[in-house]
Design a protein around this nucleic acid. Sequence first.
DNA 1: TACTTCTAGATGTACTATACAACTAAGTGG
DNA 2: CCACTTAGTTGTATAGTACATCTAGAAGTA
Lengths: 164, 164
Amino acid sequence: MTERETRHREVRGRDEVVDAIQREMTVFARRARAFAGRLHPELTLVSYTLLAHLEETEDSGGCLAKDLAAHYGLDKSTVSRQVQTLERLGFLERLPAPGDHRAHLLRLTPAGAEILAQVTESRHAAVSERLSGWSEEDVAAFAELLTRYNSGPSSGVDSPETAH
Amino acid sequence: MTERETRHREVRGRDEVVDAIQREMTVFARRARAFAGRLHPELTLVSYTLLAHLEETEDSGGCLAKDLAAHYGLDKSTVSRQVQTLERLGFLERLPAPGDHRAHLLRLTPAGAEILAQVTESRHAAVSERLSGWSEEDVAAFAELLTRYNSGPSSGVDSPETAH
DNA sequence: TACTTCTAGATGTACTATACAACTAAGTGG
DNA sequence: CCACTTAGTTGTATAGTACATCTAGAAGTA
């Protein structure tokens, strides 16, 4: 049974539902933007993301600034300055990159790991607050659908749906 | 039964699922940010939101800049400059507000309605692309859960638009 | 009425994040 | 050795934002 055939019922057509998703994504992006940097003024969304990436890659010995730039679609100058700031704040350190005297191996410091954990916890709490009253099933379903959405057809850095 | 007691099963505990949601929300926000201003350079997320608000309120004759500021948690100076830009671009017009010579009634122009529709269509297409291959049921469930999430309790560190 | 206070908005200033371009220093391949 | 590439830094420009201040009009009150 297609959505067209069920349109006479209160079931909305797919276009309408997609519009609803688009709208809610916009609301979410706006809220995220409005609060960027307010929750933890020391760690913006980008800073958080960069530190998180260092944590993820620490098993393989850290990564270089160019990797961060490539992975998140940022200009190398932007990453360079972000890294400077994070180093100044003591959240990461720059070690000589083995075999390349131009590059620096970036590593999370204990202070960086600490603040990363704190911010993650804050975000967790905010999300958890928003999900209070939800059933386990709904929470699990939401996680599954969101994950699927993000890893969707055009994976990687892409999808301008809520850009701007 | 707590999540700790069910951990031996393959069902993840609520904390883990909430973490997954937090992570996916971060991915989403980052992606949205990375593409800020690239799809429709003339209409940022905030501009889009403001024009959309004018469209929503046009039945009641438009709204004032202070309404936009209050509704989206923006400073009045920010809104003032955004409105200036949007007026310069011909997307909105400022009419004398009836009964108050300080304020201006903001109204979408036909050009504004046009670009708003274009950008909405672009976003719709991007979301639709990401949802290709999803069943009607999953799309509907995702819309429902997202809507519920956004309209959820505002914790104070979240949701400026519902905090007023 | 006159005086005070409030409000809508505009403007001055400062700061952050970002990109692009030019530059430096170091690695790579002929 | 030289040309080219690469990693990163720095100079410059722009956009978005907030806070403080200013103006003009509105609203309350003695």
